[in-house]
Nucleic acid binder design. Structure first.
Lengths: 137, 137
DNA sequence: AAATTCACTTGTTTTTTGCAAGTAAATTTT
DNA sequence: AAAATTTACTTGCAAAAAACAAGTGAATTT
């Protein structure tokens, strides 16, 4: 676990992974404008380190040569259980502002949430997990 | 989750919680000598912040007035699922040095591990969940 | 009563972060 | 086709945090 903490023992790395996972962020600009206020130099540095450690990879955008697509690797998407447990912990113990009913549903359906997260990643389905939850039940 | 990351977005806080949970660390000195090399000023600061945010509490050692016992709160022990998933992720994707068979067992028995962790916390049973393995990592 | 242990605190140096501005290549607009 | 704009960064600098080294005081051991 110390290994994980060498990688994630900072304020931004896990937030980046979370934004890729639940908000389907792909570009540098999307990360910048997803509201947490990360500095451009730090974002560039974290993306580089996450890539170096095999958690994400880059691919060019074929429609716009300025853009770079960041995408989670298998190792990256495997962080979903960690992120989910963190999300649930935060919802239980802190005031997250997230709708409580949604979180209760997620807590009851961990396996479904994880399977769905992985499916969307595999199929490059950009629908975000969070807003759209509970529809199937 | 951003809330959680304000708290845990640093190299040491989660490591402290982990050491309390799986190694049953209680005193300042135990944290110092549990091998990660945290500085005394940083350790003092993190313990204070973890206490301020209700993740741990302190109680005096009745047998030795110099010592302070740090103990996880309910909110703190509720981090067990997060830590467990991190541990499992690290074991799968990084070279942790932890005996592989042990991790496979843990992955298969998440619920048991969590129940046992909580039981030991509740009963103040200091038996560590994980045996100490060497230089670790 | 002297030495030692324990849980810290207090400087000081080094590293990391945050902020503002800038750059180069690709695309869009005129 | 020239100019303006967008995108993904880099660079330089001040401020905050961390690592390092040393010290303090109360409690305990010798």
């Amino acid at each position: 676990m110390s290994v994980s903490l060498d990688m994630f023992g900072d304020r931004w790395s896990l937030l980046i992974v979370r934004d890729m996972m639940v908000r389907a962020n792909k570009t540098f600009k999307e990360f910048l404008s997803s509201g947490e206020g990360i500095a451009t130099n730090v974002l560039a540095d974290r993306l580089r380190r996450l890539e170096d450690s095999g958690i994400l990879m880059t691919e060019p955008d074929l429609e716009d040569g300025r853009r770079v697509h960041y995408r989670l690797t298998e190792k990256g998407i495997d962080l979903a259980p960690v992120l989910l447990e963190m999300l649930l912990w935060g919802a239980k113990h802190e005031d997250t502002g997230a709708p409580c009913a949604v979180m209760v549903e997620m807590a009851k359906n961990r396996e479904w949430v994880l399977a769905e997260t992985r499916r969307r990643w595999a199929e490059r389905d950009p629908t975000p997990i969070l807003p759209k939850f509970g529809a199937g039940k």
